[in-house]
Design a protein around this nucleic acid. Structure first.
Lengths: 207, 207
DNA sequence: ATTATAAATGAATAACTATTCATTCAGTTT
DNA sequence: AAACTGAATGAATAGTTATTCATTTATAAT
């Protein structure tokens, strides 16, 4: 089970350290995460973070970038998939939002940890702004297309995008705060319930 | 404008320190908040936190309890106000959720800072669980009553409560992350839009 | 006035943690 | 197989921050 050929490509080591950072933030919070924690969780020596990231702050920034990219890339793959209909893309988007990879509680803890510091750190703020803008643009355009295709005359695509996005963020919080008696499938059902109010011919009775 | 009669009742000093803590967390994040910051923001001496709270951790816990209580008490005042109809109570609940006192960005930053640490701190978790449970119970009962009174046969009050609550948490995140081009009134409109899908006779065209 | 009481102070201490860098080690090249 | 290379190590250092407590100060009691 040993993790350690003495030497590894830099990219591998960096990823290994980011993964360890996610686990440490989930276990001890951002304020309780130390270099000693991270490196020992990774099974490596104390100095290695400074070798690969220079400073703790830069490791944290790369960790935020890692989960942001993972999220953005997952959604892009859906949005730019020519084989899916608009309805299928929206369903895939929701499924992705409540998939194992995204609703992993360790990662959710990391999201909220960074969001809590965002107001005080311009770098965190701008990383968040980037992915938020892109995703909102794409999702709004999906709703807009579905409105036309389905003759939903009174739907406001921008409003629905804002509402859906806020809803899924809030449902993530529920998943983080209520460990028992509630899971990602339940959360997904709530999200679909909202979409069904806007596009009843497409999303009613979906499970 | 001086803040300092040399001596003050303990309760006043504690509140003064909690207020300073909120400002510091908003400005520097939880991990960047030091005793020196807090006490100097309060215009008091370094040792005073330990005098009134014993430890930094206890100050943080009392800070979370402070904003939780403020939120819970505000909503209780609405819920137990006999002069309001059910519809009025729900509208008042939403207005409170997006009022100045609650959507103050300093306080929002504090909420998210604590939520990010919740997974690792059982004490934070249990403080959150308390207010969440009570508020959910009350809000569900409002929706349940409105369902009967308004003959909304297909509404699921528990689902609507979960959905509304997640939505408002998510809208708070939007207010925290997007300082410009978006305000509490806009967020409130989104929340009302959702309620209108469930109770169209009560909440359509409300501003 | 004098004494007693309790709050507040802040310099000193203790504890913790990020960062540095001389050394070790596992490959790779000659 | 000897010399070279660069990743990795971890003891030592430097910096930061929570906590302590002897002293000061304001107010109340006698």
């Amino acid at each position: 089970m040993s993790e350690n050929p003495r030497s590894m490509p830099a990219k591998t080591r960096r990823r290994q350290l980011i993964k360890a950072t996610i686990k440490c933030i989930a276990k001890n919070g951002l304020s309780g995460t130390t270099m000693a924690d991270v490196t020992s969780k990774a099974g490596l020596s104390l100095g290695i973070v400074n070798l690969h990231f220079e400073t703790k702050e830069k490791l944290l920034i790369e960790t935020l970038r890692f989960i942001s990219d993972e999220y953005r890339n997952g959604l892009d793959k859906i949005f730019f998939n020519d084989k899916l209909s608009v309805e299928e893309k929206i369903i895939a988007h929701v499924s992705f939002d409540f998939s194992r990879a995204i609703t992993d509680r360790d990662k959710l803890a990391v999201w909220f940890a960074f969001w809590g510091e965002t107001k005080s750190r311009p770098t965190y703020m701008s990383i968040c702004a980037d992915y938020i803008d892109e995703i909102a643009k794409n999702l709004t355009s999906l709703f807009s297309t579905l409105k036309k295709e389905g003759n939903y005359t009174s739907v406001d695509p921008e409003l629905v995008c804002i509402c859906y996005t806020a809803l899924s963020d809030g449902l993530w919080l529920d998943l983080l705060l209520t460990p028992k008696g509630w899971d990602a499938a339940d959360a997904k059902a709530v999200a679909m319930h909202y979409l069904a109010t806007q596009f009843p011919n497409n999303f009613s009775n979906i499970r």
